[in-house]
Simulated scan of single mutants.
Amino acid sequence: MIKVQSEDFNQQVEYDRLRKDPSVGAVVTFSGLVRDINQGEQVSSLTLEHYPGMTESSLAEIVKQAESRWNIIDCTVIHRIGELQLLDQIVFVGIASLHRQDAFAACEFIMDYLKTQAPFWKKETNAQQESYWVDARESDQEALNKWTGK
């Protein structure tokens, strides 16, 4: 399941949905939150924009790549858009698989691709209420490189 939405999500509901299949032996989840500091700057809010249709297609391709690499029984990716406040949930990735190794690897892979390849644009507002667009971090690209062999 892939969702791009402005509404918050309930981690417990998403987890419970992933563990309904009796063949599931592991569920790994990741949730990203809006934090108060990014790259040394104080942050008061975060706004996420996307390109409807293109974003969902990109997320579906990322999940498809994960499914071709690991034995995944089910996968959920939820990414929020709009203005978010400190500690708001941004993203949820949940993987259900037979074994923990596949679930951990697939979850990390999807997050590394989301941070670098998915068409989302981030604008942060600092403590002085100045807004600025956030560039991709080099560390995110380095994390992706371990999957691409670059």
Rank of each mutant, 00 (worst) to 15 (best):
N10P: 01
L48Q: 07
F109H: 14
L87I: 04
V27L: 07
V63I: 12
S68R: 11
S68D: 11
L84A: 08
G149M: 00
Q128V: 01
M1W: 05
S6K: 09
L48Y: 09
L33W: 11
Q141M: 13
R137D: 15
I90G: 02
V43T: 10
V13T: 12
K115I: 06
L48A: 07
T148D: 02
S57R: 15
I90A: 07
A96Q: 07
R137V: 08
W133G: 11
G32F: 05
T125V: 15
V77D: 03
V43W: 04
D21T: 02
E14C: 08
S23R: 15
Q42M: 10
R137C: 12
A60S: 12
I95Q: 06
V63W: 02
A26T: 05
E61I: 04
K150C: 06
K150F: 09
Q12G: 00
A60P: 00
T47Q: 10
V34C: 09
D140N: 08
D88P: 02
W133S: 13
R100K: 14
T76G: 00
N145D: 15
D16T: 02
T29F: 12
E7N: 05
I73L: 12
D88K: 02
Q141H: 13
T125I: 14
E130S: 12
R19P: 00
I90N: 04
A106C: 09
R19M: 11
D88T: 02
F109C: 07
I95R: 01
D16K: 03
P52R: 14
D112Y: 03
T76V: 14
S57N: 15
L59I: 13
